[in-house]
Design a protein around this nucleic acid. Structure first.
Lengths: 146, 146
DNA sequence: CTTTCCGCAACAATAATTGTTACGATATAT
DNA sequence: ATATATCGTAACAATTATTGTTGCGGAAAG
């Protein structure tokens, strides 16, 4: 199964935008992400709908953070991208009335719900400013030294 | 993304096999799972390679548990089916040398590794006998009342 | 030696994200 | 006004993983 890379990509680009401070076009952001401007609009559009960034069309337009890095958590970004659960219990629906299938599913559900709760708590307590600090401690934060 | 239903399906069928006690053919197991005998062989084959079940060909053959239900944990089944991680951190690989991307990935990795550790602990402490108990408490455990 | 099993290869079906092209809408500069 | 730079969106191919299916071979029991 292909991994859904949207969360990581958005964290990456939002931190860059916070460090750079100005407005960025979909074209430049696409280069940061090694991808296409349309993919950027598609994904950043979801963040705009949740008040994390704002966009302006026309000459001189582009994308800008609507809050500072310390006011955005990983959880904010995650929830803007995916309204559903992060970790989905891999339950089966072959015989919904079979007590054994229901018991198996119930055990899996319980374990996954607990793991997801822990994950969400971690997401909620991690701000993008924290990520920026780690990046700055390791190297130059705003350049792609590739 | 389609959910990987193999773990839930295997828990389901292993508990049935434990409760029934005898040998089951791929054909009958496929009916329990609403699927095809080939899919059953494919998946149970992995469990055989890990010593959870055994198979015999020819007339009177089929599949049988190699250990009792209280000697098989959910973790055993999970690891037989998938050698990799259960929860994969959705990291990005767009600019591997970019400190910001690395910092984002590191934060995600750390959170997911912690969540997976909790999940594995839960899997390890849950036996198939436990699932069977839940099923028996709710209804008849060996019949498909559909 | 026939029937009943599993073993395995090959390929279509399904589902989700990503990548790409094309066209429209809008705002700015000249 | 008109050209230009941007986002907005629809449509479709590419990719990837599991599932479903068919077909043929091998092995064991009777």
């Amino acid at each position: 199964m292909r991994t859904d890379g949207r969360l990581a990509r958005m964290l990456h680009v939002l931190v860059h935008m916070g460090l750079l401070g100005g407005r960025e076009t979909s074209e430049r952001i696409a280069q940061m992400l090694n991808t296409n401007p349309v993919v950027v609009r598609r994904t950043l559009g979801a963040l705009r709908d949740h008040g994390i960034v704002e966009s302006e069309g026309g000459r001189g337009g582009g994308w800008k953070l609507k809050r500072s890095l310390d006011q955005i958590t990983v959880l904010d970004v995650q929830q803007a991208l995916n309204e559903g659960a992060i970790i989905t219990a891999p339950i089966s629906r072959d015989h919904p009335n079979c007590p054994v299938e229901r018991a198996s599913n119930a055990v899996l559900e319980e374990a996954h719900v607990a793991a997801e709760a822990q994950l969400l708590a971690k997401y909620a307590s991690t701000t993008l400013a924290h990520i920026a600090d780690i990046a700055l401690a390791e190297g130059i934060g705003s350049a792609h030294t590739q």
